[in-house]
């Protein structure tokens, strides 16, 4: 039974990664078209690794990549700060009804299909620009849209950690002479840190990967990588796009490993810290 389970899991992983493998293979394609796969580099002028060199030489994809990273970082930072504040206040608030209404409204972008979130924002922005008689979609509209759909995920990742927090923790901090603000920043926030960080990572990746909401809220002045890829894919997909995506996957993998080690280190630090304080008592 156990062997059967292992076999099944192996098969599922294989199927999950087969298209990813196809992507990596095509990034080394010897032909300009991606309709057929070929590795006979001599037949045409393309050598091994040609598409990777092209990505950096033509620079076409580097600007969208940079845009995507800037947008994702800012989105993650803003939604982390706003989400932490909101989650903390929502947790502490004793007005059940208000709490429920705010939570449900916040969660709408998570429940709604992305396409509806995107187009509803497009309507808001289009009308605003029409009334103002100026302006257009671009970086600002994208940032607003991304923060809005990332917020519920950040709050959702912080809430369980808040519930785990000892209710006496803030009181103990204040008994020991903290002001409420000090108690928040020096005692409660460090306890919440792993959840806040995972909210940040989640917002970062959601923003980085999003293309449906971006399609409706971006303008020609600011193109993110998924939008750039989408626009290219409409005509035909050159292997350089697979090369960008492969590079991108490697980049994300690196970030993921980094955040995982950071998170486990933080958790270790906190647990060793609490052990020490327990011993001291």
């Amino acid at each position: 039974m156990k062997k059967l389970g292992r076999f099944y899991a192996g098969l599922m992983y294989l199927l999950l990664y087969a298209p990813i493998l196809v992507m990596v293979l095509y990034s080394f394609n010897a032909k300009k078209s991606t309709s057929t796969l070929s590795f006979s580099y001599g037949a045409e002028k393309y050598t091994f690794g040609h598409w990777y060199r092209e990505v950096f030489a033509s620079g076409g994809a580097l600007i969208p990549l940079r845009n995507s990273l800037i947008l994702a970082l800012l989105t993650a930072f803003i939604s982390m700060v706003m989400g932490t504040l909101a989650a903390y206040a929502l947790y502490k608030l004793r007005l059940k009804y208000v709490k429920r209404v705010i939570t449900s409204v916040t969660n709408i972008p998570m429940m709604n299909p992305d396409i509806v979130t995107g187009l509803s924002m497009m309507l808001l922005f289009a009308t605003t620009f029409y009334v103002m008689g100026a302006g257009g979609t671009g970086f600002a509209t994208l940032l607003i849209a991304h923060v809005t759909f990332c917020l519920p995920y950040v709050i959702l990742s912080i809430m369980p950690r808040l519930r785990q927090m000892d209710k006496n923790l803030p009181e103990a901090a204040m008994d020991l002479g903290c002001t409420p603000i000090q108690s928040f920043f020096m005692v409660q926030l460090p306890f919440l840190a792993p959840a806040v960080l995972s909210g940040f990572v989640m917002a970062f990746t959601l923003s980085l990967d999003d293309y449906v909401v971006s399609l409706f809220t971006s303008g020609p002045s600011f193109e993110t990588l998924p939008i750039y890829v989408y626009n290219m894919a409409r005509r035909s997909v050159p292997p350089s796009i697979y090369a960008i995506s492969t590079l991108f996957l490697v980049l994300v993998l690196g970030l993921l490993i980094l955040s995982n080690t950071m998170q486990s280190r933080l958790e270790k630090k906190i647990s060793s810290h609490s052990e020490r304080t327990q011993k001291n008592q």
């Binding site: 504040l85 903390y88 608030l93 208000v98 916040t106």
Partner: peptide, 27 residues
Amino acid sequence: RNAKYMSMLSLHSVWCVIFIVVPLLFV
């Protein structure tokens, strides 16, 4: 106490109304 936390939530609430509720009203 509730007033304090409500004020902490005010930015978030305003954001949600403008960028979630109003767009849906447009739809």
